[in-house]
């Protein structure tokens, strides 16, 4: 039976007797397939409706430089295995993520509403995220065919060009689109065999952590996606300078942040992919060239002889 995304089960009351005490969820980080709290012990208050005060929705982890470091270690450890998983398997897993997200659509919608989105916008975020996953799940075993080449060199060599993942990629999620934007920025990275460290939206971080739960139950191997909530201004300089990060997808819209990131990224020539100004709910975000942005192009030569 297909769950209805509009149905939000009200758990605040019990049909039999007195009002039931709700169980609040603790939002933590997602590192290496586990959900630890920030090592720093710090948090920030997220208020209901996305405001500056009022009902506290969650005490969100204020991730630290060390959390980011740990995330990169986990991502690096997971990268070779994820890269060598077959394209078919990656496709299956990403489709599974879409299935699981669909199953929890109402929860995501409710969570987005709680952070201040209008219900219609929240629904669009969820359905777009699901459809985006399905779209890119299908690219897993196709982008290589579309974008690789056999090159007709003049000598007696078989020469071909393929794509390989860049490695560990930091994804700076957009503030504006906390689920669809996050998924749209993240999926092209991992569909190509990279592993990711996501810096979630600071203003609307809950969807990111709930997405981590979905990933965790969808056969995405631990460490393939790591997720940190916190203050971008604090974290980004460390993202930029970390020498074991190979690329950064910057999907937010702060020009100064982007420039600072680019400058720091030059230390080890991280590829900085600018994905600001994207309509995250639109079809443009289905662009397979976004997969290419975190791929390296490898050309192999081999003699043809007997």
């Amino acid at each position: 039976m297909k769950p209805d995304t509009d149905t939000i089960v009200d758990t605040s009351t019990d049909t039999h007797a007195s009002p039931r005490l709700a169980v609040a969820k603790t939002y933590k980080l997602y590192l290496g397939g586990k959900f630890p709290r920030t090592e720093s012990g710090r948090y920030y208050k997220l208020f209901s409706g996305g405001g500056d005060s009022g009902e506290v929705l969650a005490n969100v982890c204020l991730g630290s430089r060390k959390d980011f470091r740990n995330a990169v270690v986990a991502a690096r450890a997971a990268q070779p295995g994820w890269a060598s998983a077959s394209a078919f398997l990656k496709s299956q897993i990403l489709y599974r993520v879409a299935e699981m997200l669909e199953g929890r659509a109402s929860q995501f919608a409710a969570e987005l509403v709680s952070m201040g989105l209008e219900p219609e916008a929240a629904r669009a975020e969820v359905t777009t995220a699901i459809d985006r996953l399905v779209h890119f799940a299908g690219w897993a075993d196709k982008y290589q065919q579309v974008f690789s080449a056999v090159n007709p060199v003049a000598s007696s060599h078989f020469n071909f060009t393929i794509l390989e993942p860049t490695g560990v990629v930091a994804v700076i999620a957009p503030e504006a689109s906390p689920l669809a934007g996050l998924v749209s920025a993240l999926v092209p990275v991992i569909v190509g065999g990279n592993t990711a460290v996501v810096i979630a939206s600071h203003a609307r971080p809950l969807s990111a952590i709930t997405l981590a739960e979905v990933l965790h139950t969808s056969d995405v191997p631990g460490g393939v996606v790591n997720l940190i909530t916190g203050d971008k201004a604090e974290l980004l300089p460390h993202v930029g300078t970390h020498m074991d990060v190979n690329a950064v997808v910057y999907a937010d819209d702060d020009r100064d942040q982007l420039a600072a990131l680019r400058e720091a990224a030059a230390d080890n020539l991280k590829r900085v992919v600018q994905r600001g100004g994207v309509d995250w709910l639109g079809d443009d975000a289905n662009d397979p060239y976004t997969i290419l942005a975190t791929q390296e192009v490898k050309t192999t030569w081999h003699p043809i002889g007997v």
Binding site: A149, N151, P152, V153, A154, S155, H157, N159, T161, E164, T166, N246, N268, L269, R271, E296, V297, K298, T299, T300, W301, H302, P303
Partner: peptide, 29 residues
Amino acid sequence: RAGVVWANTFNKFDPSSPFGGYKESGVGR
């Protein structure tokens, strides 16, 4: 982990063959 790998040959170049580096060896092809 490199942009050009020569198997049983080395330092071959051709205009149809993309060239460029991973990591600190460059960006683009």
